[in-house]
Write a protein that binds this DNA or RNA. Structure first.
Lengths: 201, 201
DNA sequence: GTCTATAGCCTGATAGAC
DNA sequence: GTCTATCAGGCTATAGAC
């Protein structure tokens, strides 16, 4: 319905990436054709091949473009000079809010977990998540020393992500309420769920 | 490599479904062609259309077939006449083990969360998960009355599932150890993670 | 039930004009 | 840079023989 001509993008290359991202996120690599992408941008398929050598390269670049601003987003939350508990709280809140605000990014992550090859998965882990994951592991050592930091950090991330990824499914499961789709309610629940198991002074 | 001709299946229809399931699970609906499925079964594409009216119907029936044995699997774990804590323990253990043992099922679930339409998602929720989800919600009331049962049950399921779904990604994140791929280690961690936050007598 | 053959369309990708 | 035109091949699905 909405046809938001790119306001941010300058240049055709950026416009292509910005139109391709939601298509790949919502339909997947195999489900989207170069013709569809071209149509969304308002050019012919042939023009796509001037900017990207093939479909896979376009997909790869679309991912990199979608990730571009992400790496910066969480750094601050974890590096603040505050108590460990406050760092955990701001991390959970920020992650929840981010995933709600950027559904394309969230769905691209989800698809990579299913279809990402070794190369892309490694890139994802090392260039996007590693720094935050390290900070989370450090937090684990401070807040929950009785756990493996790696497993603990995955648990935190998984808790947040699953609530969001299962949103449609949850709507048909007993006890669902409208408010459960509110990121603040999810973040609040997840935080309480974690903190009850953590040795807070 | 391995070409395990169907040993369980009796009849072509079952053979088709059994060959289609891993293909859909690993590559996805849009990524798999009727030709590929036919080739895996050892028949021609035309023969598929004798058994299933079109590709979508085949996919739908393949899902139903993959789910068929699942509904029974978890019932006992939750209906045992044991303490709530023991029911939680056997649920987490059984879910973890099941997802590791049936990667096709696990991946089909993951794909449904991404691409499932309203109809399939509802079917999934109501015919497969509802009963176990209710039992989990009941468990929540007994073990963690300070939480919303719905959100608590989702958290438990999400904890287990995310560890498994993120397996490839985890391999490239700091602190990963080989043993973290062992379902018993994951189940043990998840259980401890949950139980520390639960009021056990 | 399964086959051969094929219709009709869509796909990724390229050549060459502008 | 973007176009028109097009190729070669893959796709779902069907018709009709056996």
């Amino acid at each position: 319905m909405t046809k938001p001509i790119q306001a941010i993008a300058t240049g055709t290359r950026a416009a292509i990436l910005e139109q391709a991202i939601p298509l790949f996120a919502n339909i997947g690599f195999a489900g989207v054709s170069m013709r569809e992408i071209a149509k969304a941008v308002g050019i012919t398929p042939a023009a796509l091949y001037y900017h990207f050598s093939d479909k896979e390269t376009l997909y790869f670049e679309a991912m990199r473009y979608a990730y571009a601003d992400q790496a910066e987003s969480f750094k601050m939350a974890l590096q603040l000079e505050v108590t460990p508990r406050q760092r955990l709280e701001s991390f959970v809140l920020q992650l929840t809010q981010y995933l709600y605000d950027k559904p394309d990014f969230q769905r691209l992550m989800q698809r990579e977990r299913l279809d990402g090859d070794e190369h892309r998965t490694k890139l994802l882990a090392e260039h996007l998540f590693q720094e935050q994951f390290k900070a989370m592991s450090e937090l684990a050592r401070e807040l929950a020393p009785e756990f493996e930091p790696h497993l603990w950090a995955i648990s935190i991330a998984g808790l947040v992500m699953y609530h969001i990824e299962a949103e449609h499914l949850r709507h048909h499961l007993p006890g669902w309420k409208q408010e459960h789709d509110d990121p603040r309610v999810v973040a609040d629940h997840v935080l309480r769920f974690i903190l009850q198991g953590v040795n807070i002074d």
